[in-house]
Amino acid sequence: MLPDSRPRLRVAIVQTKPAKGRFAENLADVGDAFAQLAAWETPPNLIVLPEAALTGYFLEGAVYDLARDAEQFALELATSWQATNAAHPVDIVCGFYENASGTYFNSALYIRVTTDAHTILHVHRKIFLPTYGVFDEERFLSRGRDVGVFATPFGTAAILICEDVWHSLVPTIAAVKGARLLIVPSASPGRGVDGDGDFVSVERWKQTLSMLASEHGIYILYAGLAGFEGGKGMTGNSCIVDPHGRIVVQGDQTEACILAVDLDAREIDRARAQFPLLGDLSSVLTDLVNDLSSSLHTAR
């Protein structure tokens, strides 16, 4: 077991570029990444993979072919890590399509893996299922209903998937509930070539993540899926954002890659000392919630 509240945490993001629907092949590719990470002189304590990391994102009806029970998926991931014969435990976050007794979700789980066992610490089910334009999630999937936070060796964390983060209220709830680390598995097709230097969608992601991290003084681990899916290209661009809102490392846009950073919990304290916005919010939150509640009642 890792000691709790460790000030530093070595994090690796494994940006995957899966072949559509070929789960076993893609898991084998991730196994290669795990072997690479396990061989490091100081291996990571936490590994994060994207949304739909082992199947591809746009599955349509094939989601019913490929969705798995969380326990089964955890076992498959844990077995892959244990195959590296790594001596130390690791935590893994990975997005997957979940079959929960016939109800289907776009989920991401957080597991702790030791040499001979594993435990699911948290499963987040995507709340905001984009169903507009090119997106069609709610045709095939059900919505998650809550923003859960959970304890990690680095402190309290939360997982939010892709569009969950585009509604600033959702990460705000996670931060208010104590999250100091926000993990964001994502799959974002690039669009908007009338910008300046990058896709408009990519620029929007960078602005959103930077703003959220600096507003709440949190680390954000953004794991983006890569690869083309029927003409729609996922803009990998995995990144790690520090509590000041700075993107400290960023991955490739089109290929699989690994990002690695040591997070320092003291940086969170320093950022919050400089801009105590989360503390300010907490002090007036009851008033705001009451105001919102009365507005919602009036609207009804």
Binding site: A19, G190, V193, D194, G195, D196, G197, D198, F199, G227, F228, G231, G233, Q253, T254
Partner: peptide, 24 residues
Amino acid sequence: PPRLDAAVATKWLTAFLRDELVVR
């Protein structure tokens, strides 16, 4: 008419062709 960041489009379409032809 709409503008275009030709460098972004070129990089993306090159990756598209390589992925769709060779990888897939």
